[in-house]
Design a protein around this nucleic acid. Structure first.
Lengths: 236, 236
DNA sequence: TTGATAATAATCGTTAACGATTTATAACGG
DNA sequence: CCGTTATAAATCGTTAACGATTATTATCAA
C-alpha cells in the first residue's frame, strides 16, 4: 500500500478551523497524491493534522458536501469515486461556468490579470521542460483556478475550485497515459483570445479544451474497486 | 420579537442526517420567514428539530460553508447579512450561470421541461391574483431553481439553489417595497425565448431580469443592525 | 431615573467516554 | 491448503460533561 501521502505536510497552522484540513486534502487530491477510494480514517487524520476528532469530522463533512469525499455510514470516509455520470456533470458545469468567465475576462481585458495568467503559463512550460509530472498536474489544474481568480468572484471561485478538484479524481479514475495534464498550448491560446478581446473565441476554446480533456478519458474502463464489484455481480 | 418561524414545521423525517435541518432553514430563508441576522441558537434548534446538538452544529457548518449562516466564534450562529459587495457577487454569478443554463435549454428545447416551467409560471400567476405574498416570493425564487432543474445538472442545481437562497437574504436586507418578487411577465418572456430556441435572447432576458431585481434594491439604505453600528461609528 | 458594576445564567467549543457496527485476526474443520 | 466460523481489535456515531466565553439580570451609586 502507498504510504500515507499526507504525512509529509508539516503543521504550519495559523487558522484554528477545519478549513486547513479541507485545503490540505484539496491540495492532495489536486496533485493526485490521494487516489479515489482511499480510506480517510479519523484516527489517521487526527494524528496527521494534530487535531481532535471533531475537527476532522467537520472537515470530512465539508468535503462530502462538495463531492470530494464519500461518507459511508458506519464505514468511514473515502476519497470519492465519481461515476461516469458525475464526470459528465462536472465537465458540463465547468464548460458552462468557465466559458462565462473567459467571456467576461475577454470583455473587460484586465491587463494585470492577463499578465498574471501569462506568468502562470510560463511556469507550466518550465515544469513541462523539466518533466516534473506532479508539478505539471498541479499547475495544469491551477491555471483554471487562476482564470476564476482573475474574474474575482468568490462564489464562482469556490465552485470552480471544487469542480477542478473533482476533475482530478475523474482523471485519476478514468485517465489514460498522460491525460492527467491539460493539452499543452491550449492554455496559451485561450489567454490569447482573452487578451485579444475575442469573447466568443475564448469561450469556444475553453469548451473545446475541456472536451479534449474529456476525450482523453476511458469512461468505460474504470478500474473496478470493491464497491463496483457488488454492483456488477448483483446483490446476492 | 417575531415568534420563531421554524416551530410550525412538523418533523416528517425520513432522512437521518443533517440535510433535513439544512433544507428546512433553506426553505425558511427563501420564504423570508427567517430574516438576516436572526440568531440561530443551538438549544432552540435542537428542540425545534428534535435532534442532538451535534446534528445542529453540523447543519450550521454546512450552512456557513454556503454563506447562508454566519458562525461567530463563541457567540453563535446568525442568519447571514450579505454585504453590498457580496450581493454584487451573487448577482454576477447568477447572471453567468443562469444565462448559460437558459442558453443550453434553448438549444436542446426539451418539450417536457418547457411544459413544466410553463406550469410553474401559471402557479405564479395564480398566486399573484390571490395576492399571497409569501407564496409569490416562494414561487418567484423557485422558478429559477426549476430552470436549473430543467438542465438536469446537479452541480449547477446545488449552486443555483445556494445563490437563490442568498438572494432572498439580499432582498430581505436591501429590498424596497415589493421588490421581493421577480418582475412579472419576465419569467414568461424568458420561457418563450427558450421555447423558440433563441439562445442569445434567452440569455439576455435572464441577465436583464436579474438586473431588474438588482435595480430594485437600495444597497446604500441597509437597515443598520447592531454589527453595522460599530462599523459606522468607529471601533472605540 | 440613569449608568455602571457585580453576580448569575445561558451558550458555545471542546474533550472524553460509551455502545454499536464493522474490520481484522485466529482457530477450526473439510 | 483453503474456506468458514468465532473471537478480538479497531473504527464510527452519538451522548454527556467540562471549562470558557458571552449575555442577562440584579444591585448600587450618582
Amino acid at each position: 500500500m502507498p504510504s500515507n501521502s499526507l504525512n509529509k505536510m508539516e503543521n504550519n497552522s495559523t487558522e484554528p478551523d477545519e478549513h486547513l484540513i479541507v485545503n490540505r486534502i484539496y491540495a492532495a487530491v489536486m496533485e493526485q497524491r490521494l487516489a479515489p477510494n482511499t480510506k480517510l480514517s479519523e484516527p489517521k487524520l487526527c494524528e496527521t493534522f494534530g487535531v481532535g476528532r471533531m475537527r476532522v469530522r467537520r472537515a470530512l463533512l465539508l468535503l462530502a458536501s462538495q463531492g470530494i469525499v464519500d461518507l459511508q455510514s458506519n464505514k468511514g470516509a473515502y476519497v470519492a469515486c465519481p461515476t461516469p455520470g458525475e464526470a459528465d456533470e462536472v465537465f458540463s458545469a465547468r464548460k458552462l461556468i468557465e466559458a462565462g468567465i473567459v467571456r467576461n475576462l475577454a470583455k473587460s481585458s484586465d491587463e494585470t490579470a492577463i499578465a498574471g495568467l501569462r506568468h502562470h503559463i510560463e511556469k507550466e512550460d518550465r515544469a513541462r521542460e523539466v518533466g516534473e509530472r506532479r508539478e505539471i498536474i498541479r499547475l495544469s489544474g491551477e491555471f483554471h483556478v487562476e482564470l476564476a481568480n482573475a474574474y474575482g468572484n468568490s462564489v464562482l471561485n469556490k465552485t470552480i475550485r471544487e469542480l477542478i478538484t473533482r476533475t482530478s479524481l475523474i482523471v485519476g479514475l478514468f485517465g489514460t497515459n498522460r491525460s492527467a495534464t491539460c493539452p499543452e498550448n491550449e492554455h496559451a491560446q485561450i489567454l490569447d483570445a482573452i487578451a485579444a478581446g475575442d469573447t466568443e473565441r475564448a469561450a469556444e476554446l475553453v469548451c473545446h479544451h475541456l472536451e479534449h480533456i474529456q476525450a482523453g478519458l476511458n469512461l468505460q474502463h474504470q478500474q473496478p474497486n470493491e464497491d463496483d464489484l457488488v454492483a456488477i455481480l448483483g446483490s446476492r
